[in-house]
Each structure stands twice: as structure tokens, then as C-alpha cells.
Computed example of a mutant assay.
Amino acid sequence: MSQSEQTIEQRIDALLVGAIDPHVHTGPSIAPRALDHLELARDASEAGLAAIVTKDHDYAGVMTAALIARHHPELKTKVYSSIVLNNVVGGLNPYAVEHAAAMGGKIVWLPTLAAENHLRWEKTANWAHPATTQKIRPASPVKVLDADGSVRDDTKEILDIVAKTGMALASGHIHSSETWKVFEEAQRRGVQRLIFTHPEDIVDASLNDVRGIAAMGAYVEHSLAMFLNGKLQTCQPEDLKKQIDAAGPERTILCSDLGQRGAVHPIEGLRQGIRLCMDLGYSDEDIRKMVSTNTAHVLGIEADLPEAGVH
């Protein structure tokens, strides 16, 4: 390894200290996962990450996160979880959201695999997600808007709970046009923390959508898995620069969206993503924002950051 390459690796090591992965797919899951939540927590702790947020399409991992915190106080990395409003938790189920909040959940994801948009997209993509519960029972689309395009009352009830509890609201796999309407209603109802989920894939978002939703005050989350060479790549590396520049590093957060069997390890995905951002010309200060401080802010976990991770 040359001296310059060694310096780059040292910079990446330093940026991983205090980093946060807010969207990672570890097990257990009905989909094949390469590692479980505890295994990732151990690996993340060794790398110096401040926190991870586990995401499963079918259950809130808040109980698992609580068990890891109780029985593994030696871990440096805080483990949080989230809830995704798909069929298995009852869709737009206020009871499930309130329970997840009471157990320390950090993110409420609007429907993903059960979203109307996702179900349409899967048909055109001729592909079935490995975590789909349609293998068990046909999906019942979880709708966030009424037929006239207005935000449904049950969606509004979820937004009120998110506002009251201070959790972050992520758009999931709903269409970008739906995200505009739900996020506008969310802000009217007092939701402070908004995350626009991977506009680069599935949700049919333009760069103007990215610019506009970021201008609303939302953070735009990009899935590094979709830009890195491997089984999950759907975009080119240069596309990431277009996405980041549309919102600006101040409104961008990067996640691995990894954990799938056969894909790169989530920590290695973060390493490669940081290296990609360096190659694209972003400063270490801007990368720190995108992998750490912006995420800490939208999740309300700034206290988790080590002193070395605050700039």
C-alpha cells in the first residue's frame, strides 16, 4: 500500500468513528441476511460507529435493540430500531407506532413492500423482493392518500403520533408525488424530522424532487448499496454526486442499506461509500455531515456522538 493510499484509509477510519448507519437490513428476517443485529453491533463497535438503526420490512426491532443494550454494555455503538408500516404490523397502525415509540424506536417508515407504488414497481421490474410476504399471503396495498389525492385520515393519525413522540418520518417506498403531500401535511401537524428515502430508486423521484423536498427541511437519504459495485447496484457512482449536489451535503444523509446475504458487509459498504465521496471531490467535513452529524440531528441522538465526531 502506497503512502497516499494509506493516508486515504486512515481518513476513512477517522470518518467511521462517530458515523451512523440509519438504514441497515440485518436479521433475523424472512429474507436471507448475512448477519444479525448483534453481529453488526459488534462489528460497528469495533469500527467506532456511534449508532446503527436496524430496519426490517415486517417488524419493529425495538425489543432486540433493548436486549442488546442491556446485555452488551461493552459495545460502543448504540443500537436503535424502527418500524415499517407494512401489512405485518397492520399497515397504518397507530397502536404499533405508539408502542415502537415507547420502546425507543427512532424512525417510522411509511409503507415499503406493501406500498401501492412498490407493488406497481415490482410488476414493471419483474422482480420480487426476498422479504416479500406475498409468498405467505397476497399483499394488501397500504395507501397513504385517498382516491382524490388527499392525505388519508389514518395517515394523519400516524403523523400526529410522530409529531408527539419526536420520531423521524421516512417516506419508504411511496411514490415521490405522494411524499410531497404527506410531508407537507406532516409539517402542518408538527412533524419536525423528515427523511426522503432513496430517491435514486423505486420511488420515481427527479432531481427537482430532491431539491424541493430538501428545501422543505427534509433530509434526503441515499442508499450506498445502490451506487457500489455488487448485486444491489442500480446507479452509477457519478449519479451519487448529482443526488448529493441537488440537496447539498447539509441536507444529505448516507446509509448502507446493506445486510443482505451475498452483498458487501454494511461496514465495508460505508467504507466504500466514504471512499466514493472522496473520489467525487467532497471534503472530509462534508462527508462527516453526511455519514454522522446530519443523521444524528434528524434522529435526535447528537449525544451519541463522540467528541472526535463533532465538527
Score class of each variant (00 low, 15 high):
residue 158 I to N: 00
residue 158 I to C: 00
residue 158 I to F: 00
residue 159 L to F: 05
residue 159 L to R: 02
residue 160 D to W: 13
residue 163 A to V: 05
residue 163 A to L: 04
residue 164 K to Y: 02
residue 164 K to C: 07
residue 165 T to H: 03
residue 165 T to C: 07
residue 166 G to Q: 03
residue 166 G to V: 06
residue 167 M to Q: 06
residue 167 M to N: 04
residue 167 M to W: 01
residue 168 A to G: 06
residue 168 A to D: 04
residue 168 A to T: 06
residue 169 L to W: 00
residue 169 L to Q: 08
residue 170 A to V: 06
residue 171 S to K: 03
residue 171 S to H: 07
residue 172 G to P: 07
residue 173 H to D: 06
residue 174 I to H: 02
residue 174 I to R: 00
residue 175 H to L: 04
residue 176 S to Q: 13
residue 176 S to K: 02
residue 176 S to D: 11
residue 176 S to T: 14
residue 178 E to M: 08
residue 179 T to P: 05
residue 181 K to L: 15
residue 181 K to N: 08
residue 181 K to Q: 15
residue 182 V to T: 07
residue 184 E to W: 03
residue 186 A to S: 08
residue 186 A to C: 11
residue 188 R to W: 13
residue 189 R to E: 10
residue 189 R to G: 06
residue 190 G to K: 04
residue 191 V to Y: 07
residue 192 Q to M: 09
residue 193 R to Q: 14
residue 193 R to H: 11
residue 194 L to P: 02
residue 194 L to W: 02
residue 195 I to Y: 03
residue 196 F to E: 03
residue 196 F to W: 04
residue 196 F to T: 03
residue 196 F to Q: 05
residue 197 T to Q: 05
residue 197 T to G: 08
residue 197 T to K: 01
residue 199 P to Q: 01
residue 199 P to V: 01
residue 199 P to L: 00
residue 200 E to L: 13
residue 200 E to H: 14
residue 201 D to T: 15
residue 202 I to Q: 05
residue 202 I to L: 12
residue 204 D to V: 11
residue 204 D to H: 11
residue 205 A to K: 00
residue 205 A to V: 05
residue 206 S to Y: 11
residue 208 N to W: 09
residue 208 N to V: 15
residue 210 V to M: 03
residue 212 G to I: 09
residue 214 A to M: 10
residue 217 G to W: 11
residue 219 Y to Q: 13
residue 219 Y to K: 11
residue 220 V to N: 05
residue 221 E to C: 12
residue 222 H to M: 12
residue 222 H to W: 11
residue 223 S to V: 05
residue 224 L to C: 08
residue 224 L to I: 14
residue 225 A to K: 06
residue 227 F to H: 09
residue 228 L to G: 02
residue 228 L to F: 06
residue 228 L to P: 02
residue 229 N to D: 14
residue 229 N to I: 10
residue 230 G to F: 06
residue 231 K to V: 15
residue 231 K to F: 13
residue 232 L to T: 14
residue 232 L to P: 12
residue 233 Q to N: 09
residue 233 Q to E: 14
residue 236 Q to L: 14
residue 236 Q to F: 13
residue 238 E to P: 13
residue 239 D to K: 02
residue 240 L to D: 09
residue 241 K to L: 08
residue 242 K to V: 05
residue 244 I to C: 07
residue 246 A to D: 09
residue 246 A to C: 10
residue 246 A to Y: 06
residue 246 A to R: 00
residue 249 P to M: 00
residue 249 P to A: 01
residue 250 E to H: 12
residue 252 T to M: 03
residue 252 T to W: 01
residue 252 T to P: 06
residue 253 I to A: 02
residue 253 I to W: 02
residue 254 L to G: 04
residue 256 S to C: 09
residue 256 S to Y: 08
residue 256 S to M: 05
residue 256 S to Q: 05
residue 257 D to A: 13
residue 257 D to C: 10
residue 258 L to D: 04
residue 259 G to N: 07
residue 259 G to T: 10
residue 261 R to T: 14
residue 262 G to Y: 08
residue 262 G to H: 08
residue 262 G to I: 10
residue 263 A to V: 15
residue 263 A to T: 14
residue 263 A to M: 12
residue 264 V to C: 11
residue 264 V to S: 09
residue 264 V to M: 15
residue 266 P to M: 07
residue 267 I to G: 01
residue 267 I to R: 00
residue 267 I to H: 02
residue 270 L to A: 03
residue 272 Q to H: 08
residue 272 Q to W: 03
residue 272 Q to N: 11
